[in-house]
Design a protein around this nucleic acid. Structure first.
Lengths: 138, 138
DNA sequence: TATAAACCCTATTTATTTTATAGACTTTAT
DNA sequence: ATAAAGTCTATAAAATAAATAGGGTTTATA
C-alpha cells in the first residue's frame, strides 16, 4: 500500500493539475480541500519541488504550481520519491538496491529471479500511468 | 516492499518445495538455512498452515510439508496472507477494502479509478507467478 | 509409561517507520 | 513596515513490524 505521504502527494498533484490556469495555489487550499495537515503537506510539496515536479513562488501572493505536463509525471516517479523502491525486494531494486541478509547466493536465488520479473512488469504499469490519467478521470 | 514475514515465508515455501521427497521438514532447518529467528519463522509457518498451504505433523519426527502443488501457490496468495492488500490504496482493495479518509467522493476520484486499473494489472502479474517459477529458477 | 522432540498458541516487548507538529527563517507584495 | 507565504531542520507521537517468551499439546520411541 502507498503511504499517506504518497497518497497526499497524488491529491496535491491532482489539485494543482486541475488549477493550472491559476498562477499559484496555496498549500492551505490543498490541505483544506482534503482535510490534510497543513504542515505535513508542506513537507511533501517541498519534496515534489526539489524533485523538479513543482515550482513555487515565495512571499505574499505566492504558492505552488506544476512545472511539468501531467503526461510527463508517471506514478512510478511519485511513488519512488515518497515511498522508495517499487521492487518488492531490496535485492532487485533499481534505485535502492541492497542485498538481502538472509540470502546465501543472489545468483542462485529463485525468489530474486522471479521478483526481478515482477519488478519489470510492475514498472511497465507504473511508468505508463501518469497524472494525466488521473486528471481525465476526475 | 515485502515485509520480512512475507520474504521469510517465500524462503520457507521454497525450502519445502525443494524437499518434497522428505515427509517433513523442521522449522529449525529452514531457520538455520537462512539465519532466521526460529520463533519468528514458527509464527509464519503456522499462518501458512492455517491458510491451507502447509500441513504439519506434531511430536517427535514431526515437521511441515507442502500440501499444494507449487504451481497452485501464486505470489498473490502469499503476499495477501502475510502483508495484506495488493492494491495500492485501501479504497480499491478487493480483500481489504476501506474508504480513504481524505477522499470527498469515491465515485469522482480519478486517483481511485487509476489505482483500480493498476490493481487489476498488478494482480495479473502476481497471480501468474507461482512457487513453481521460483523453484525452476533455483 | 516416561521422556524428549516437535509443533501450537497467545501475549508481550522491542525496534523501526510513518505521521504529525513545532518553530524559527527567508522572501515578497502592498 | 507588515503580513502572507514558502523553506528548512528538528523533534515528538503514533502505528506497525519484528522479535522474543513461555507454557501447552502431541507423538515416537526406549
Amino acid at each position: 500500500m502507498l503511504s499517506k505521504k504518497t497518497k497526499y502527494a497524488l491529491h496535491a498533484l491532482t489539485y494543482l493539475g486541475k488549477h493550472r490556469e491559476s498562477k499559484t495555489v496555496l498549500i492551505h487550499d490543498i490541505a483544506e480541500e482534503h482535510g490534510i495537515s497543513h504542515k505535513f503537506l508542506e513537507n511533501i510539496l517541498l519534496e515534489l519541488k526539489k524533485a523538479g515536479l513543482l515550482g513555487s513562488k515565495k512571499g505574499k501572493g505566492g504558492g505552488y504550481y506544476l512545472i511539468k505536463e501531467p503526461k510527463d509525471i508517471p506514478l512510478s516517479k511519485v511513488i519512488r520519491l515518497l515511498d522508495g523502491p517499487i521492487a518488492l525486494l531490496p535485492c532487485v531494486s533499481i534505485n535502492y538496491y541492497e542485498p538481502c541478509a538472509e540470502c546465501k547466493s543472489e545468483a542462485a536465488c529463485g525468489i530474486k529471479k522471479v521478483m526481478a520479473e515482477v519488478r519489470d512488469e510492475t514498472l511497465k504499469i507504473l511508468e505508463n500511468k501518469t497524472l494525466e490519467d488521473i486528471l481525465t478521470n476526475e
